[in-house]
Every structure is written in structure tokens, then in C-alpha cells.
Design a protein around this nucleic acid. Structure first.
Lengths: 142, 142
DNA sequence: CAATTTAGTGGGGATCAACCAACCATTGGG
DNA sequence: CCCAATGGTTGGTTGATCCCCACTAAATTG
């Protein structure tokens, strides 16, 4: 009985997709960015200015897709794109003040949505869940 | 620091997608079915014969997509499709003996793959993870 | 200098999930 | 009997993800 729901991966995936969607929907209205844009902003916020190349590698997306991602962020004035003086092929992507503001807002949105989606769990359980999935995620194998 | 990885939903989603992909890849070669087909077979295995309607609702997919899903399973002889004598609009979808065999094989594959993907967790941790995500999943969300 | 490599660009394309409108056959209510 | 609702079907669209190739400008190597 309950073959499907007995599969951890299945439930995990469903919960993950639902959570992702909830966040994406909220982000689309509030700071008006996509999940990938948030990912890029977060990467920049964590590690400081970087080349598109590095960002793409960090997020695990194709460089050509990163270009289009940057186009959107630039158009919204959330990042600035200057040539790296030491290697003029490279760009130096940095968060603008407005980008930082949006990132902060987005973080708040995520926190808020997660509060709702993880609501059936206690505080300790949420921490445990985070620890467990992180453990899997960081596992070297594949 | 680590803004992205600090978001439970983000990691959850990544792990879910990776796990789902791993299983889908293996299912494609071994019993030669898709994940959605496994889901349908599992539903049938758990709850016995059902109408396409009910199956679609149970899996949360569109009825029109369920039609095409059934087409594949029928072509492979994994399910049988008879009109419900009590309501001739309805079908009565049942697992064929071969469908049951495939379902059993698929279950084994899933178990095997999960053994690998959840490998960084102890047995107790796996049970905890399953319990936690199930708790979220069954919550009256949205 | 010539050849190669690298960062970024632009233009796709394949696949899949999700959804929608229109339609047929059947049922059930009035 | 007429009509609305339901189960199923067909033929789409949309959006997201992923991936690939050809091209430029700049840097690096020989």
C-alpha cells in the first residue's frame, strides 16, 4: 500500500517543486524577479563581484543562458557590468545598491514563504530537515 | 554567506530533482517506463482498478495527459482498459499480470537507486527524512 | 607574429510538464 | 424528451530546462 508515497524521492520531489513554485510565484510579484535571478543575486551577495563565467559555473547553468539572465538583471538595474581591467574579455558583475535592496527583500520573501510551507514542522524539525537534505546535496557521488 | 544553500526549499528542490532524474534514467533502461507511468502503475497497484479520471486526480495531472499516459501503458500491455458496465462513459483500468511484474521490478529499481542517493544518511536519518517530507506533503497546503 | 584558448554573445533546438479549448458519448435530473 | 454534467479524447499552446554550435574580442602560448 502507498507505494508511491513510500518512495522518499517521490515525495521529496513533489515537496520541492511545490515549495519552489510557491517561492517563484511570490518573487514574481514582490521584487519582480525570477528564481534564477535570485540565485544569481544571492551568489553575488555571498561572494562579491564575479565574472559571468564564474556565476554560471557556480549555479550550474550554461554560459549562454547566463548572458540572458544578466540581460534581465541589467535592464532592471540590479547589477552593474564593467569590464575587468585585468582581463578585458571578462566582465565584473556587481550588485548595485538597488540589487542589494532587492536581494534583501527576496530573502525576506523566501523566509516568509518557507515559514508557511514548512509550517507543519516544528522549529527543530525544520533544522533537521535542512541538515539532512544538505547532507545529501553535498554528497560527492552521483 | 551561503544565502542560497541556506534556503531549505532550494536545497530540497535540487535534491528532489536530482533524485527524480536518477530514478527516471534507470527506469528508462530497466523496465522501460517513465516516472509518470510508474506513478500510474503504483496508484493502480495500491488502490486496484480505477477510472482514468480518478487516476489523474490522484496523481494531480490533467485528464488529457492521463489519456496519453494510458496509451503508452496499453501499448506495452501493462494495463487493460475495459468499459465500466455501471457507467459506460468510464473506463476500468486494471494492472495486467505483466503490469504487476513491471511494477515490482520498478519498485526494486527505485529502492536500489534510493539506496545510492540517500547513501550519506544513516538508516534512522532516512526514516526521519521520509517522515518530515511526508508531513509537509500531507499538509493542507495552498 | 601565428595559433590556440577563453569570456561572452546570439541563435537556435529538444524535451517535458502543465494547461486549455473543443469535441463526442453517456448519464442523470427535471 | 431535453439539457446540463461527466468521462474521455484530440490537438494544440506555453514555459521552463537543458544543451549545442558558430561567432567576436581579447588574452595567452609557442
Amino acid at each position: 500500500m502507498e507505494t508511491l508515497l513510500g518512495m522518499t524521492t517521490f515525495v521529496l520531489h513533489k515537496v520541492g517543486v511545490a515549495g519552489r513554485r510557491a517561492i517563484a510565484d511570490r518573487l514574481a510579484v514582490k521584487p519582480g524577479i525570477t528564481l534564477w535571478q535570485l540565485a544569481a543575486l544571492a551568489e553575488l551577495g555571498d561572494q562579491g563581484p564575479a565574472a559571468q563565467n564564474e556565476l554560471a559555473a557556480g549555479l550550474g547553468i550554461d554560459p549562454s543562458d547566463m548572458v540572458r539572465l544578466m540581460d534581465g538583471l541589467l535592464a532592471d538595474g540590479l547589477v552593474s557590468r564593467d569590464r575587468d581591467p585585468e582581463d578585458r574579455r571578462r566582465y565584473r558583475i556587481s550588485l548595485t545598491p538597488q540589487g542589494k535592496k532587492v536581494l534583501t527583500a527576496a530573502r525576506a520573501v523566501v523566509r516568509e514563504v518557507e515559514k508557511a510551507t514548512l509550517q507543519p514542522l516544528s522549529q527543530a524539525e525544520r533544522a533537521t530537515l535542512h541538515r539532512l537534505v544538505t547532507k545529501i546535496h553535498q554528497s560527492p557521488v552521483k
